[in-house]
Design a protein around this nucleic acid. Sequence first.
DNA 1: TATTAATATTCTAAGCTTGAAATAAATCGC
DNA 2: GCGATTTATTTCAAGCTTAGAATATTAATA
Lengths: 170, 170
Amino acid sequence: MSVVSTNSRKGAASGLDAASAASKARLRVWLRILKVSRLIERELRERLRVEFDTTLPRFDVLAALYRAEKGLNMSELSGVLRVSNGNVTGIVDRLVADRLIVRVPVEDDRRAMIVRLTAKGKTHFLELARGHEDWVNEMLGSVETSDAEMLIAQLGDIGKRLDQRKAIDK
Amino acid sequence: MSVVSTNSRKGAASGLDAASAASKARLRVWLRILKVSRLIERELRERLRVEFDTTLPRFDVLAALYRAEKGLNMSELSGVLRVSNGNVTGIVDRLVADRLIVRVPVEDDRRAMIVRLTAKGKTHFLELARGHEDWVNEMLGSVETSDAEMLIAQLGDIGKRLDQRKAIDK
DNA sequence: TATTAATATTCTAAGCTTGAAATAAATCGC
DNA sequence: GCGATTTATTTCAAGCTTAGAATATTAATA
């Protein structure tokens, strides 16, 4: 989580050079993102548990399926959520057991399964989503809309570049 | 991870009212933070695994201990890392087994244990930290210093307020 | 058509994470 | 000093997460 200064190896004549200072600023950006992210995530987990007896990964799956009118197959689902393939299997298993989603065999590909919300799942998700938006709004209540727009733009750029990087790596 | 619009319940005469728009902007801020955070975290995990055969939680513990000259007891450690008490026990167990840290009984409190880096642990951590800063710098390479400062300030404010909230709740 | 390669999913082992319960020791109130 | 409460830590059960192996099926190609 926290980290230390180790960047005096660029060999400038004295003290910190520009590259090192920039590097440190970026490191601090990351540490702040991480801190905020963990604080919010922790609170969301807690509230989902206490008020709805569920978990964040379950919510994430339901949200992804709610947005996908026709459902998603397992690969698409793990892609959207950015988690491993095998991971989704377990969460889906439990949601199926709770009758919130169903696995439907794909007509012309016997390997694949499409996962979809049930009516019960949809109703359930809408309750969760209402709470979720309220909680986030409450936690970020101090953020003015103008600041929010700026953060959205900045973080959007960063995210986009990270996505591109990843695409290139492969 | 992703979420949906459910905030048309504030009863404005037509369309979205100001509160609802603000709420949605904040929700998007959160979703962007979450996305960036997960992308970066995933890459850091991957690199720590491939290049150093270790994990992010282990790195976090080592970093916290590196910053604490005299070590930390288990409660302080879980406090700094913002994870549960029991969680730290397991990670510390494994780091102790690898001789990277030691548990030292506290003289005047037989319940407590202080955890400290060994010389080996310190050396190991410095290698990790060097890689870590480089990777972050690379991933956020596109962020100009002026933007970085702004993000640091904004996210710092958000983090501070969330900390305060938490303190008040208790 | 027969192989080979690619794709979709699940399974497995190991570690992470949590909240709650269990221990053990210190401290507080009397 | 003694009982009750608080504090420090570990243990436990359940679920999350990952990478990699195993299965099954489809697609490509020779």
